[in-house]
């Protein structure tokens, strides 16, 4: 049985040890670097998306609603686009206008550091900047639950 465990260990160790955190710099549309730590003190909903990703089209209207509804209570929605070329995102944003902040990470190094498991991926940080929730994909059925998580964090 010994051999089995050894092989399993080798297999697991290949997974990179990454830790999502707000201490990262991401470029905005004009290329200016924005540090996510400036959102500290707020509940931060970091979402990774791309123009070709189907479920992302469903998550945007929901994020827009969350932004409009809870921005005043200290919610910051940050959507990081991972298209290889930012111009692909233009048509997407025309179809689904977003008033929350959109940042761009074409070479995906931030996404690699967050070790995304699928698209879209969202990471929710509480007011002190700790990662509390992670979601992969976007499912209409879970919208209520996602919203409740934000409400609880906003109350803290």
């Amino acid at each position: 049985m010994k051999y089995l465990w050894i092989t399993l260990l080798i297999f697991v160790s290949t997974v990179s040890t990454a830790a999502p955190s707000l201490d990262v710099m991401v470029a905005d549309k004009q290329g200016q670097l924005v540090s996510l730590s400036e959102f500290k003190g707020k509940v931060v909903y970091v979402d990774f998306w791309a123009s070709w990703c189907g479920p992302c089209r469903k998550s945007f209207p929901w994020m827009e609603q969350m932004h409009n509804q809870y921005q005043a209570q200290g919610l910051a929605v940050v959507a990081i686009n991972l298209d290889t070329e930012p111009r692909f995102a233009e048509q997407f944003l025309k179809d689904l206008p977003a008033s929350f902040s959109i940042l761009y990470n074409p070479d995906g190094d931030i996404a690699r550091q967050f070790d995304l498991q699928g698209m879209p991926s969202s990471f929710i940080f509480n007011r002190t900047g700790e990662l509390v929730y992670q979601h992969v994909g976007f499912f209409n059925k879970q919208q209520k639950q996602y919203e409740q998580q934000l409400i609880d964090l906003l109350k803290e």
Binding site: F60, P61, E64, L96, P97
Partner: peptide
């Protein structure tokens, strides 16, 4: 018909 939330 309701103008959907995501459009202005």
């Amino acid at each position: 018909v309701k103008r959907v939330a995501e459009c202005s």
